[in-house]
Each structure stands twice: as C-alpha cells, then as structure tokens.
Design a protein around this nucleic acid. Structure first.
Lengths: 350, 350
DNA sequence: TTGAAAGCGCTAACAT
DNA sequence: ATGTTAGCGCTTTCAA
C-alpha cells in the first residue's frame, strides 16, 4: 500500500525518513535509537516514515561515527597441521561440538543485534592477520575457541583490552573470562557410577595431558576413586580422537586384562575404545562398564550407547555470549569466569 | 624501531599516513589501493609511512563511499523445528558436513580479503531479518546453505540481484548458480560396485523424496541397475539421520529378507542401517554388501567401514567461493552451475 | 524538545 | 602524476 517514498535503486536513508516524516535528520535519528526526548506525535510520524520507506540504518555510516560495529568475531584457533593429511582447516569445523557452540552463541548474539564474523587462525600469518583485524576495531568483541594449549592468542587478546571470552580455560593463564564445565566434578560422577556398580578394577583412557581439561578429568577421576576406596588407577593417554581412544584402550587392556570399569575422557574416544573391548571378548556393560564424557552424538551412536558425563554445551556457549555482551556494554568490566555443573546421562554402557 | 607517528589511543588514519609520507591523502589512497599511477619514489615513502604508523584502512569509512563491504554472508537456512527436541538451531551446525563446507569456503574467501558473516534463517521472522540485512547492502554476496526443499529463500535472493551461490540444487528452481555433485553418477558407481560383486537382490535406503538430491540418487541408482540387468529395486525412505536409516533398513529387510546388496543414500543412514543387518544375522559384506554416500566421517566410523561414494565437499565449497567472487567482480555475470564428479571409496562393507 | 551543522575516514571526480 | 574537494549516511554537540 505505502508507496516507497525514496530514490529508486538505493536503500532509503535517514534523510529520506526525515523528509517523509517532516522532521530533521536529528529527530529521526533519535527515534531510531530509542532516545526518550522525542515528542510522541513526532515519534509516530517517524515510525510511519520508516515503514513507508523500508528504512534500515546503514551500518557503515553508523559505525564510522559511533566506533561500534555491532559485530563480534568468532575466532577459531588451531595448531598448524601441514604434516597431517587433514584437508584444509583441520578438524575443528567438522567437530559437532563446535557446531553446538556456534548454535548456542548465535542464539544469544542474534537477538542482541550482533553479527558474527567467522575467522580462523591456524598459522603465524593468519594469526597476525586476525589480530590486526581485531585491533583495528572492526569488531566489538571476540569469542575465542582454541584447541591447543600453547596458543599465544589468549594472552595477545588480553593485551588488546578488546572484550573477549574464551571457550574453556586457556592452557597458559590469561586475564580473560572463560566458560567451562567443572571437569573434576564430571570425573567424580563417572567414578561414583562405576564404583556404585561394584567395579573395583578401574582404569581410564585420558585425554592429552598438555590440555588442562584433560589433566583435570584424569586428576579428578583419580581423586574421586581414592575417596571411594579405590586407590590405584591405571591409565593410558589418547588424543581425543576415535582412533586414539582405540589405541589407548588396547594399551590399557594389555597391561590390565582384569579391568571391569573404564572412564573414557571423551565420547569420541569411547567410540574407539568400546569395540576394542568387545573384540577382546569383554561384554559391555556386563564385564566392563564404560563411562564417557561430553554427551555428544558419539555417545548415542556407540554400541552399546554410552553412559556419559554431560556438558551443557549450548548453555555454556550462551553464557559466553552473555559475558561478552556485558563487557561490551560496560567497558572495563571483566566478569568472572563461569563454571558449569556436569550431569550424568545413564545409557547402556555402565 | 619505527616510532609510531600517530595520535595516541586511536588507530592511524589515512591522514596520518599522508602526513608522515609528505603527500596528499589521495596519493596515499592510491598506493593503498594499488593504483598504477603513482611515482615509484612516492610509493615507497607511503609504504614506509604505512609501516611506521601501523596503518590499516577503516572498513566502515571505505565501505561508506565504495558501497562495497568486503564481506559475504554465509546463510544457513533450516526449516523451523519447534516440535523437535533438537536443542536450538537444529542440526545443520552440528553436521560435520557443514563444517567441511565452511572450511572449503574460508580457504578461498580469506585470501580474497573477504570476511564471512554467519547468519541463520530458521523461521519466518529470522528469514525476514536476514533478507533485510542482505538487501541493505551489508554484504557483497551470499552463500546459501539450505536444508529444506521448499525453502523460499533461493528465489527471494534471486530477486535481489545480490551475488549468490547455492550449496546444492534448490528444491524450487531459481536463477542462481549452484554447486553440487553428480548424484546420478554417484548412484551409478554404487550400482556398478554391487553388481560387479555378483549381487542381484539389491535394495536401497533412499533419502527424503522431497529433496532433489535424494530423488536423483534413487532414480540414478534404479536406472543404473536396470542398465546392468537388474530391473527390480525395492526401497525404503529414510530421513538422512542415523535412526532413520536404521528404521528404513528394518522395513526393507522385513519385506525382502533375501537382499544381498544395499545402497544407502548417506553414510549417516548407513551408520544406522549396518547394525540392523548385523543384528538380523547378516554378515557385512559376505552376506550383504553395503555402499554409502558422502564419504563422511561416519563412513570410517562404521563397523565395518563403509565403502562409499565420495563427494569432494571442500573442493565444492571452494568452487562456490570462486563462483561468488566472479559475480562480485563482474556485476551482472551469472556463472553457470558446477557439477562435480563423485568417486568410489572402497572400504570393507562392499 | 527540536534543528543546524560538524565531522567520522575514506574514495573518486575533477583540476592541475 | 598529484592535489583539492565533495560527499558517502550517520550521530552528536551546540543553539535555539
């Protein structure tokens, strides 16, 4: 119905809105930005003009004057892997876990009016490039998902004073808030489950011990077992991949054939570990109980389905977004890190 | 060494560079944008000034005048699924396939100096929002990854005249270039493999028949079998999920217990289908040969590992990026769609 | 409460 | 080949 009163071909500008509403650009701008000091009648006129013209603000123009960008960067930092056969950017993107993080993030960021720019840092050059981009003020904040413990990026970001949130505690401490699950508490849940089932010869397939999360899962599991009266803990280290889990399970089983319970530090490794047990003639869960970690799709896909420690990944990502928003809105504020409580999801493997 | 000759606190501007180099803003701009009409000596001076000041262009300012944004949108379009238990944005993001697409895309986009903005359209409101954003000229182009065949977005995008590329042929035809794999050729590879192994009682677990890709895989498989002298094709429809594959396999096997070969239209469905066969007492591949489609992680994860039809996903995504770049560089050009040739990856299941 | 005007940093005529 | 200048669309003093 409304004739779009504007120059043809180009999107309507604030100027157009002002003209249609019969006010100045300044007043139109006030309405658009929700400032209270506008007469109700004029406000209505402007709002009508916005609808009539199909106006939407030009972000570049706005950004030029406000120095905000209404966008944040989602930076994926991976160790360079030219030696691996992995095609291109490595496994982060094809990890369903990462997808869940993105999902939880967007769910908060979108309603806040923030766009999300995807960036990858996987070698020295790209890291410098990303950092330059961020420092230049092209985004209002950064969510960093880093997969390697010796990543220098957290510290470098801390020095920029740009609002930043980390997915998980960084390998090298940095003065930045992070969100993660209580690894030790999760390990304890696993220990309690296995012990409650009467298992006493318990081992664990741990994650890479240079990663804090993996360390804490191992350490927490050992501590919980000790508290439950099981002082000894044989373990083997995997690399958080399926193949690595299988390999570690083989070593563990070779050294300790009498095992009746295993805590595998990730579901994906569990996917590799369980078949090793089965092929070695152990029934799961009858002979050996297995508890995983993550509650990823892998847990459901396993045969039998894995009993596992659940991380509320989407909720955690949502919290990351909120921490970031708070920093953006209150410059200087550095909110405390948030640690989520894990829960046990009982399926068939223990 | 170089003292950063600039106002403190703020990034250097073109003005700063010009002053340090002792030239006008225009000349500095010419150097930065690589225009040829600049004296070699001045060019060097400007380049030094850039280094000295740590200058990087302000994208907002540039965008305001050029009407380019040097960014593209990666739009993920999914059917609304409030009825499902799926947490949040649905399964696209946690699909490793999507991650491979992102990976291939970024690999081309990054060197071209384009940022990638992630957007989701999963209901009427978000679709309108995304469309408004795109129409407003906030990006130079769009990559659309759509998961549902009745998606109105391809057509709506075609009407905007914004450079666009689709991941896969759209359900409703649209005048936009797309990239996909030759589905029929892939199905033929599967048929040839099974028939070459002497199998004659062959069925297929097809994908959702409202999706073009799924239709073509079924149709192509049927055609190829007929050409090879196997005229009959029992089939059951799955929904491209693991559980759906298992369910369809059960139905297929119930109706045709004598099957000795199955083409499963996705590896993920294969992951569900194979255990059904095993539990029904069929050995794979001895009693029943199984060929999947995609060559995803699922194919390797299956037990036995799936022989499958490979889609070069990262390469295809890279091609999408190139098609988009061409449209951006040559406005008005609508490059033809590109169809990739699949290949057979032989593993243990057939 | 409203408007006039300056200016954010950059590119692109245009003039030289 | 180089410089001067006029905006791009918006927010934000500052006056009224």
């Amino acid at each position: 119905m409304a004739t779009e009163a504007r120059r043809p071909g180009r999107p309507a500008t604030l100027e157009d809105v002002a003209r249609v509403a019969g006010v100045s650009r300044a007043t139109a701008s006030r309405v658009i930005n929700g400032l209270p000091t506008v007469d109700a009648a004029l406000r209505r006129k402007v709002e009508e003009a916005i609808t009539a013209t199909g106006y939407a603000p030009n972000r570049a123009a706005r950004s030029l004057v406000t120095r905000r960008t209404d966008s944040v960067a989602l930076v994926v930092s991976e160790r360079e892997q030219r030696h691996l056969a992995t095609p291109f950017i490595g496994r982060m993107f094809s990890d369903p876990h990462f997808g869940r993080v993105v999902s939880g993030l967007l769910r908060e960021l979108r309603p806040a009016g923030l766009q999300t720019v995807l960036m990858v840092a996987d070698d020295e050059a790209s890291r410098a490039q990303v950092l330059a981009y961020l420092r230049q003020g092209h985004v209002d904040g950064v969510v960093l998902v880093s997969s390697h413990p010796d990543d220098p990026l957290p510290r470098m970001l801390a020095e920029t004073a740009l609002p930043t949130v980390l997915a998980g505690r960084p390998g090298r401490a940095a003065a930045l808030p992070y969100v993660e699950v209580d690894q030790r508490a999760g390990a304890r849940l696993a220990a309690e489950r296995l012990v409650a089932q009467g298992r006493r010869l318990i081992g664990t397939v741990a994650g890479p011990q240079d990663m804090p999360a993996a360390q804490e899962r191992l350490d927490g599991f050992r501590g919980a077992l000790a508290a439950l009266g099981v002082p000894d803990l044989p373990w083997a280290e995997g690399d958080f991949t399926r193949a690595g889990g299988a390999e570690a399970m083989r070593r563990l089983l070779a050294g300790h054939p009498g095992l009746d319970g295993v805590f595998v530090a990730s579901d994906l490794m569990g996917l590799g570990a369980v078949p090793v047990l089965l092929r070695a003639g152990r029934r799961v869960p009858q002979d050996v109980g297995v508890v995983g970690f993550d509650d990823s799709e892998a847990a459901e896909a396993a045969e039998p389905a894995l009993t596992t420690v659940r991380q509320p990944v989407e909720d955690m990502a949502g919290e990351m977004a909120r921490l970031l928003l708070r920093q953006i809105r209150e410059p200087g504020a550095v909110p405390p890190s948030v640690v989520f409580r894990p829960s046990l999801v009982v399926r068939d493997s223990a």
